[in-house]
Amino acid sequence: MIDFSNPLHLLAYGVMAAGLAFDLVGCIGLVRLPDVYNRLQAGTKCVTLGTCLLLLGVLLRFGFGSMGWKALLCLWFIAMTSPTAAHAIARAAHRAGYALWKGSVGDRYAEDDEGRNIQPAAAADRPKEA
């Protein structure tokens, strides 16, 4: 399957292996980390970069053809939309009042919201930072 005489193919498989590594690390973080915000940031960043590298591997493997352009479009779309969806979920979880991990050292979103009267229910009775 791998054409060892073509350096572009070797580069494509190397990039895809790196993408798989990022995906796996993100999924392990999704299982191992303690609360929803930590899981969100581990999962989203690592898996977005890993999937972008897999799609870049498709582009390197096939060149700018019918598959390469679609892979590039898909890469751009993933890179634009995945952080947006993660931001929406984090904001919704914070506003719905899901508690932070007990080892968290700060909650800047609750501090920023104090002047605007949109505090989540759980942030109101959380002790303020000294």
């Binding site: 895809m16 897999l54 493997r61 096939f62 993660a86 979920i89």
Partner: peptide, 29 residues
């Protein structure tokens, strides 16, 4: 433990599936 965790997991599952489609593209051409 919370519904937010499930939402995060489903979101990441969708991105992983796009990566799976990329691998299938290379496998089948």
């Amino acid at each position: 433990p919370t519904p937010a965790d499930r939402a995060v997991s489903v979101d990441i599952l969708g991105v992983l599936m796009v990566g799976f489609c990329a691998v299938m593209t290379v496998a089948t051409g």
